[in-house]
Design a binder for these strands. Structure first.
Lengths: 242, 242
DNA sequence: TACAGTATTGGTCATAGTGACAAGAACCAA
DNA sequence: TTGGTTCTTGTCACTATGACCAATACTGTA
């Protein structure tokens, strides 16, 4: 135990929970941001969050903040992915924040539930490219969230969390393509999805084709194979692997 | 903002950093535990940790605790993997802890650096099977750490963090086998490692065979391909996937 | 020295998975 | 009806992987 430090007089911190809420909209990965009212960083965009209460767990705090901010009770996915405690991250005081990743499928209800002037869905790429500046260290938090969702997509196959309860192959494929920034051959993608069966279940129904026409796509719903080992794997291109 | 809650009067928490220190020893995955001196849980085993100081970041706190507890300056790997803030996790007060995973390669120095009566390396399996009871919610933390290292092994290939600066194929293979609980064919494993080259670099030297004899193994060192996409993948057995 | 034992290294073979691509099916719009 | 679009089905080549065998290079013992 080093000199000049008395652990019985432990330092006090404020603990907050911040949530990176992701969803797919218009073929893009989007994140929900709120505009800050008061100081510091007044008027700037930030990810939603709030103080943890003494009587609740971190997970409960995240769930509470999520429903308070989006009026959505349960996200398709709500996982903790990091904690941030740099001394200067909040100019007011010493704040340690625990960051959660939430994935929503129903976009309409989200924006409707919040004050439109105060909350908005923006493309994740705009945040990562710093076209939109975020308060605090929220840029770093969003960056980490994206990295996490990329891994999660491969190891646990959360792709179905982004789409509706029924979806087409093209919709599911666009999730992978948007998050990983790659392109898949539609035929091969389909084959891979069906290779591990239980992932998607055919509903028998069909989607109406878009205005451009095209053969109507079959509709599927998420299967029971949520856990471990996603159906699609990132393979590094031969050039990449040297 | 809900009624009856004033965020300006934010609740104060103690913030600690706990470290799950893993290493390979005698072919087993082992975790470093310390015996608690004072209350609560006096005399029980726990993972090392301590209070975060106001002027340091979480990563700095983890690094400091690591060197204080093990007299090892830099671990091969030190990553944060979770935060735990259940209200009742510490009977004394409201403590939020941020958990780190550390991987050490040099075992001898570790145990020598700490008081042998107070610290010990124990097989992870003994902890997971609850043969050794841990203080606080440290069992859950260790469980999460193991799950994390399993994933990390696949997506970022941290296997070389467990072995020495030079190692044989058998040593590297035993890391995967111990962590994933599987067995690999030595020949196939070797082939997979070399498939993505840059992972291991031959040194030209050879290891002395064990007392049981056997052909001397070639010695390798870790390559530069630390990032993204490990060389070995977990393939679910055909029975598992359906 | 000869021999059995052991672990590493190198190879073959069959099979599953993947990328590239072609062709058919089902819709829209003109 | 014709052309355009999208989804679906199928084929072919190639790569990755699991199972297996044999050669190699040591140790220890008779």
């Amino acid at each position: 135990m080093p000199a000049g430090y008395d652990p019985s007089q432990f330092p006090a911190f404020a603990v907050t929970v911040d949530i990176v809420i992701l969803t797919m909209s218009e073929g893009l990965l989007q994140v929900l941001l709120v505009r800050r009212g008061g100081a510091p960083y007044a008027g700037m965009w930030a990810i939603p969050g709030g103080f943890k209460r003494p009587a609740e767990t971190l997970d409960e705090a995240a769930k509470r903040e999520l429903s308070e901010e989006t009026s959505v009770d349960a996200a398709s996915l709500l996982t903790q992915f990091g904690a941030y405690g740099d001394p200067e991250r909040d100019p007011r005081m010493n704040v340690v924040t625990v960051a959660y990743l939430a994935v929503l499928r129903d976009v309409g209800a989200v924006v409707a539930g919040t004050d439109a002037a105060e909350a908005a869905l923006v493309p994740v790429s705009d945040v990562l490219d710093e076209k939109i500046e975020l308060a605090f260290d929220h840029l770093r938090i969003v960056r980490d969230a994206i990295e996490r969702v990329r891994i999660e997509l491969e190891v646990s196959g959360i792709a179905t969390a982004f789409v509706g309860t029924t979806f087409t192959m093209a919709e599911l494929r666009s999730v992978y393509e948007a998050i990983w920034g790659v392109e898949f051959d539609a035929a091969n993608f389909r084959r891979s999805i069906f290779a591990t069966d239980g992932w998607v279940v055919p509903t028998g129904r069909r989607a109406r084709p878009g205005s451009a026409g095209g053969r109507p796509a079959e509709l599927y719903k998420a299967g029971w194979a949520w856990c471990h080992g996603g159906p699609i794997h990132r393979t590094q291109r031969p050039e990449e692997r040297k």
